[in-house]
């Protein structure tokens, strides 16, 4: 039943439950619903930051004071930015293989791929920290320019979300080794993969924003 037909129900007309299916038979579990709802929150967070980025970049406020143009100086694009991006793609691929393994019931491969995905995710975060240090060593400090400030802000927000994902991944690995219920472990692996793909997508859009402006 589509959402529109659900919202068009004339609930006062037909008391009773004839034809109604038990919700347990079709509803996704709460954690899955919760993760999807959170994607909505994350989408709005990054959209607003990206909007603020574009607005601030377009400011031309120094003209009033005799300095023509904008104070925005774009950040460079070092090789490490692309290496980190590649590592995140690999991490996402590993999680996808873990998800497929969970679907096929290949538990051993699922465990291996989940751990690999997590390790690559960790490598991405370490790489981002190294990238920050490189920028700082070159004088691209947070307050030196609005482009720098946005770069640190966006990458920090993205990194914190991935750190949260790593925590969930760590718990899933813990559940595997603790012999938890299979259904729950596979559900968690699937959610880790979806979460990782989502934040890979976010990262792709952020990189596109950073390198094209």
């Amino acid at each position: 039943m589509s959402i529109f037909s659900r919202l068009a129900e004339k609930s006062w007309e037909n008391p009773g439950n004839r034809g109604l299916v038990d919700p347990q038979d079709y509803r996704p579990d709460a954690v899955t619903v919760g993760v999807y709802v959170y994607f909505g929150v994350a989408t709005i967070v990054f959209t607003l930051m990206a909007a603020a980025y574009l607005v601030r970049q377009g400011m031309d406020t120094l003209m009033d004071h005799g300095i023509d143009g904008s104070d925005w100086v774009a950040m460079p694009e070092p090789a490490l930015l692309w290496i980190n991006t590649g590592v995140l793609v690999a991490s996402s691929l590993a999680f996808e293989l873990a998800r497929l393994s969970a679907r096929d019931g290949a538990d051993e491969r699922m465990a291996t791929m989940t751990k690999l995905g997590g390790l690559l995710g960790l490598a991405f975060l370490v790489g981002q920290l190294i990238l920050w240090r490189q920028f700082q060593a070159q004088g691209f400090f947070l307050a030196a320019n609005p482009a720098n400030a946005f770069f640190y802000l966006l990458t920090a927000a993205h990194g914190l979300h991935l750190a949260g994902g790593l925590f969930a991944c760590g718990r899933t690995v813990g559940l595997m080794s603790g012999g938890a219920e299979e259904r729950r472990v596979r559900r968690n692996v699937r959610l880790c993969a979806i979460y990782w793909h989502f934040f890979l997508g976010v990262w792709a859009l952020l990189v596109a924003l950073l390198v094209t402006t």
Partner: peptide, 24 residues
């Protein structure tokens, strides 16, 4: 609020008892 809000939305979407359709 985000922690609470996720709970409220997910509970309404996922934990309604049998027969409690959205329009009930």
């Amino acid at each position: 609020f985000t922690m609470g809000g996720l709970n409220y939305v997910t509970t309404v979407l996922q934990a309604r008892c049998k027969g409690m359709t959205l329009m009930r």
